[in-house]
Design a protein around this nucleic acid. Structure first.
Lengths: 212, 212
DNA sequence: ACAATGAATGAATGATTGTTCATTCATTGC
DNA sequence: GCAATGAATGAACAATCATTCATTCATTGT
């Protein structure tokens, strides 16, 4: 008992740089979700992280860099999740598309805090080229994979009338629009129902692969 | 000549309350599009309106009210435009749906400044109930009309497998997602192309009404 | 003409915000 | 054990911001 109590009287004040930065980024996500981007301050973030005022400038130099790194973190995490889902999925084109769509409505991606972050930064893209480029990159990478998969499925199923790019664009746009519903009206629709809306679209577009 | 010059030496300083408020709201829209919501200040707005600092508090009491009234203005304008489009459209259900979709990609609605305003406020909805309610109301009113039209078309065309609510939700989500593309990557897609993506969706869902 | 009205101004004010830095404190190597 | 190191603190500072208000000025009624 006395041995067990001996150490933890003083809390360790140091952590590795990476760990502190991650802690601050996660606090930023919570702060944006809780207060909005326009009222997220150095104080709200450091308070959320239960650390002192100066800590952000120590690790990120400025508020601006913290915000950019937060956006980059969410974007990288998103990419990592769908890349893993592709690897883990079945080999068929249909299963890969299914896995990709599934990711967008999965817990780690489709939680309101994360959605709030996406929309917060999307709202600033017109005036902030840095935000815009990060967001566009995310979109383009995902879109390219989806286009390729759709093209493959169109060949496999001889859906001659279909244009892969249009279908992929429609699917991606639909997902982002459904995210807005989930952010704004979480009581109106669950992530599962939102996913069903996308699957329903796939059924009507690729009837021979996706059937009810 | 001397008579023509006599008057306009001094500019009129007074305008009706409504006119000034509208001028300030339009300046707010431009400021949000140019600087983003989080760096839109009383100074950027009054400067954009070419009026003095104190003018906003005179007409709107606070910055907060100005922002809420700006959102309300954009929402009301949007509703007015689609209600007019419905009245002006042909009588058939198909034409009404077409008119409704067309509005979303029409100049007055689908300009980047307006889109920037929508996304700016959407990004804050999680933390600001007032914003959320205005945005939800807009969504719900439009959605309800679209659901009713889809239900009618499903009956007319005997599309037994279709669920009106799913189709309307998918269409609305797609539109909002396409708005994001138009805001972020205006060079990748034109409003006309975005509209085509929606029309393409309608073709696959209601093949007997919308054909290529 | 002139006074009364109220819209508009912009300098001043106080509150908030991002950033800095001298100091504190836990950790590491000797 | 004892310096040396550098992570972390939080009070202090400068900059920015929303708001106020005494003053200016165009308009309207008499």
């Amino acid at each position: 008992m006395s041995i067990a109590l001996a150490k933890p009287v003083t809390k360790p004040r140091t952590a590795s740089k990476k760990a502190r930065q991650l802690q601050l980024i996660k606090a930023t996500i919570r702060s944006i979700a809780k207060h909005g981007l326009s009222t997220t301050t150095m104080a709200t973030v450091s308070k959320e992280a239960k650390l002192s005022q100066g800590i952000i400038n120590l690790h990120f130099q400025s508020k601006d860099r913290l915000l950019v790194e937060t956006l980059r973190y969410v974007a990288d995490e998103y990419k990592a999740v769908w890349e893993k889902a592709l690897v883990d999925s079945g080999d068929s084109t249909k299963e890969k598309i299914e896995a990709l769509v599934g990711v967008d409505f999965e817990k780690s991606v489709c939680q309101r805090n994360k959605l709030a972050v996406w929309f917060a930064f999307w709202g600033e893209t017109k005036s902030r080229p840095t935000y815009r480029e990060i967001c566009r990159k995310r979109d383009q990478e995902y879109l390219q994979v989806m286009i390729d998969l759709c093209r493959q499925l169109i060949e496999e199923g001889s859906y001659q009338k279909l244009d892969a790019e249009s279908v992929a664009n429609a699917l991606l746009a639909m997902t982002e629009g459904l995210w807005l519903d989930l952010l704004m009206s979480p009581d109106y629709m669950t992530p599962e129902q939102a996913c069903d809306v996308c699957m329903h679209y796939l059924q009507t577009v690729f009837p021979r692969h996706f059937q009810a």
